[in-house]
Write a protein that binds this DNA or RNA. Structure first.
Length: 421
RNA sequence: GUGAGCGUGGCCGAGGGGUUUAAGGCACCUGGUUGUGGCCCAGGAGAUCGCGGGUUCGAAUCCCGCCGCUCACCCCA
């Protein structure tokens, strides 16, 4: 038997109400904040990610779904959204639009990872990106959008983690400082962190190794070594967040694994959904456009994993509005009645009534049972008697009462009961 | 890529070498109603016990390998 590939899942009808609610709120809140939808292709030239995300990142080194098409071109299923947004911005000359250009999308993303709670090889991510403006108020607006999306979904108790990691001017200096410090205390670091130190010292900061915690706690903090502009930007952002009443935790250990981040980085954390507790995250990427060969263009954005927010919703017992099921179900007795039932069902659907018809010619009892399982308000019975007199028997499921209704009157009869009050 | 736990009908789940021709529950089908649901009763269908190999007179049960699932690490949403 075939199974869904590892790390992928079927989103079954029973789960769909959560997804529907999430998508509805995403649309609503995005437009509230002036973001417009864009849908990039689901694969891009491989080079876009190699250059944009960074050659030494985990994504590029081991997580991309890369393949050659029949023309011999190397393509990659999107492992993240931001590079595509920026590519589209540059490709379509969006610098002539009023800046910043605010875009959003919900995309399936693909990363070859070991699945675990809240992590998949294909996952859906909502992205909101504001490109073309470096002012910290834009960072604040993105964070506010995220915050308001969470609260519109009813999520409570999320924690916003905030940090600034500087830019191309001040980060190299900080990096050196951090490396020197960590080298001095190498002996007190876990061995995986010692290895990490030589590859990417910033990553040591968010290590979960218990042995390293004391050293990390005393490590120099990036926010204390920002250049003047970065410091001003960060101060500005904090002021706007305060202004908007958004509370946050300064997290000196928050670094993110993609190379393009500059200055602002942030994550939203949820409790109770497993080790992968970040339900959203993002930051500023002022260097990305240039990496992609475009004109220097600032940008800031964020991504939110739909699977993870749905986990959080379930964990917090938030129930979405249920799917509307059929309102009526047609049963029949006899072959002539079957034709009539099918015809009538179409007529009802044409009038906006969600109607199901029994199929397969089973006993009336079995059909009635099915009507019950479908959760309809009315079972409409057609048999010899009804055909002869052009009526239907309307059976009210809740009470068991039955009415004989002329077929010509059925639409009115149902409308009265389904659409009033 | 690494580590740990786990794989028994559609779902949950008992059984841990021989009366197992594998319990029980949910769901499904049929009947108890000649044209009628939810409750009840009776009956029925549905499992090569993840796959392959080994040990044994005998394996769902023990051993090995593989595959898969889950959780965790790395890292991310």
């Amino acid at each position: 038997m075939f199974k869904a590939p590892r790390g992928t899942q079927d989103i079954l009808p029973a789960e769909q109400p959560y997804w529907q609610l999430a998508r509805d709120k995403i649309r609503e809140v995005s437009s509230l904040y002036g973001f417009r939808r864009i849908d990039p292709p689901l694969f891009e030239e491989t080079g876009l990610f190699v250059r944009g995300v960074g050659e030494t990142t985990d994504i590029v080194e081991k997580e991309m779904y890369t393949f050659k098409d029949k023309g011999g071109e190397s393509l990659t299923l999107l492992p993240e959204g931001t590079a595509s947004f920026m590519r589209a911005y540059l490709e379509h000359g969006m610098q002539v639009l009023p800046q910043p250009v605010k875009l959003y999308s919900t995309l399936p993303l693909f990363r070859y990872e070991r699945p675990q709670a809240g992590r998949f090889r294909q996952h859906y991510q909502f992205n909101a990106e504001a490109i073309g403006e470096a002012h910290p108020a834009v960072d604040a607006e993105i964070i506010a959008l995220a915050w308001s999306l969470y609260s519109s979904l009813g999520l409570k108790g999320l924690k916003l983690q905030l940090n600034s990691i500087g830019d191309s001017r001040c980060r190299p200096g900080y990096n050196k400082l951090l490396t020197t410090y960590l080298r001095e205390h190498q002996k007190r670091l876990a061995k995986t962190d010692r290895e990490r130190l030589s590859r990417n010292p910033l990553r040591v900061l968010d290590s979960k190794e218990s042995a390293s915690q004391k050293v990390i706690a005393q490590a120099p903090k990036s926010v204390e070594h920002l250049c003047e502009d970065c410091a001003a930007h960060f101060a500005g952002l904090r002021e706007y967040l305060g202004l908007m009443g958004i509370s946050y935790t300064l997290n000196h250990r928050l670094v993110r694994g993609l190379d393009y981040y500059t200055r602002t980085v942030f994550e939203f954390w949820a409790a109770g959904i497993g080790a992968q507790n970040a339900v959203g995250g993002g930051g500023r990427y002022d260097g990305l456009a240039k990496l992609l060969g475009g004109k220097d263009t600032p940008g800031v954005g964020f991504g939110l994993g739909l699977e993870r927010i749905i986990l959080a919703m379930q964990q917090q017992k938030i129930s979405p509005p249920p799917d509307p099921g059929p309102q009526v179900y047609l049963l029949y007795h006899g072959a002539a009645a079957q034709n009539e039932a099918i015809r009538l069902a179409e007529k009802l659907r044409g009038a906006g009534i969600r109607a199901g018809v029994s199929m397969g010619g089973r006993s009336l009892k079995a059909q009635m049972k099915q009507a019950d399982r479908e959760g309809v308000k009315f079972a409409l019975i057609l048999g010899e008697k009804e055909i002869e007199k052009s009526t239907v028997t309307a059976h009210i499921m809740q009470t068991g009462e039955e009415f004989t209704v002329a077929q010509g009157q059925l639409l009115n009869w149902l409308s009265d009961r389904l659409f009033r009050r």
